[in-house]
């Protein structure tokens, strides 16, 4: 089932079997993509949206010197560019970060859903609102947090999102990103990221080994990044194992 991770464990939202079947039927194609592949370019006219099944993808904007700022990272279960359905033209590029498997959903199918299934339409809308909530959290991260805080916030956020997708046990997850990806995500240089990762390791908060992340102290890491998972609208009770829930006040 391709849509298994879509809106999984989201608070107050549950896909009914009829809705899930309709969403599955709306998929026109499954594609496997290599890492570092551009999928959508800003300004392209679009007639389909992408549901990410496996791997990591990003949305990004390059500055006039070609330096990249990632503005979103997508995990399995995300409808990466659902906002392209009403917008038709995006203001940013979309690319794979790792090898990825995606489901293609034509906009004509989404159009039909809006006519036939208003409840499912609201749930699709809900998923774009989650994206907006994540953007707000990223703005906070850049505006208020220092280097260690930014990385701590991103790792804590990714951990909870992957817990929701069933890809983290609350402490360990595979993150197929390289150091320069983290730099672009957190607006830091490679040297700075290197130092931050060392600091997190020395403070026994979090360890990166190859592409594996181990969070040694989830609550302390969350506190260091001022991370409060409320904005992800995830039902943590059902998504997590009891010992790993991030708590700001501990």
């Amino acid at each position: 089932m391709f849509t298994e991770r879509f809106l999984r464990h989201r608070r107050g939202v549950h896909l009914e079997s009829e809705e899930r079947a309709r969403l599955e039927a709306s998929i026109s194609e499954i594609k496997t993509l290599p890492p570092r592949t551009n999928i959508v370019m800003a300004g392209d006219e679009l007639s389909q949206s992408i549901l990410l099944l496996e791997g990591f993808m990003s949305r990004y904007i390059d500055d006039r010197n070609g330096l990249r700022q990632l503005v979103a990272v997508h995990v399995p279960g995300d409808f990466v560019d659902l906002h392209a359905f009403p917008l038709k033209v995006l203001d940013h590029d979309v690319a794979t970060m790792t090898a990825a498997t995606v489901a293609i959903v034509p906009h004509s199918e989404l159009e039909a859903i809006t006519h036939d299934l208003p409840a499912l339409t609201r749930k699709l809308w809900f998923s774009t609102l989650i994206d907006a909530a994540i953007h707000r959290a990223w703005l906070f991260r850049f505006g208020r947090l220092d280097a260690v805080g930014r990385v701590a916030h991103f790792i804590s956020e990714t951990n909870v999102r992957l817990m929701s997708a069933g890809l983290s046990d609350g402490r360990r997850f595979a993150l197929g990103l390289i150091q320069s990806d983290l730099a672009e995500i957190c607006g830091l240089t490679n040297v700075h990221i290197n130092r931050v990762l060392r600091q997190l390791r020395e403070e026994r908060l979090c360890v990166f080994r190859s592409s594996l992340v181990e969070i040694l102290e989830p609550a302390k890491l969350a506190a260091r990044g001022q991370f409060d998972p409320a904005y992800l609208y995830i039902d943590l009770q059902s998504a997590e194992s009891p010992s790993s829930r991030p708590r700001l006040n501990s």
């Binding site: 220092d146 280097a147 957190c186 607006g187 830091l188 240089t189 040297v191 700075h192 130092r195």
Partner: peptide
């Protein structure tokens, strides 16, 4: 750090 200067803080300042 590695022949560069890293400035942390105050607040959201993080520059190399």
């Amino acid at each position: 750090e590695d022949g560069l200067v890293v400035l942390d803080g105050p607040d959201g300042v993080a520059v190399t």
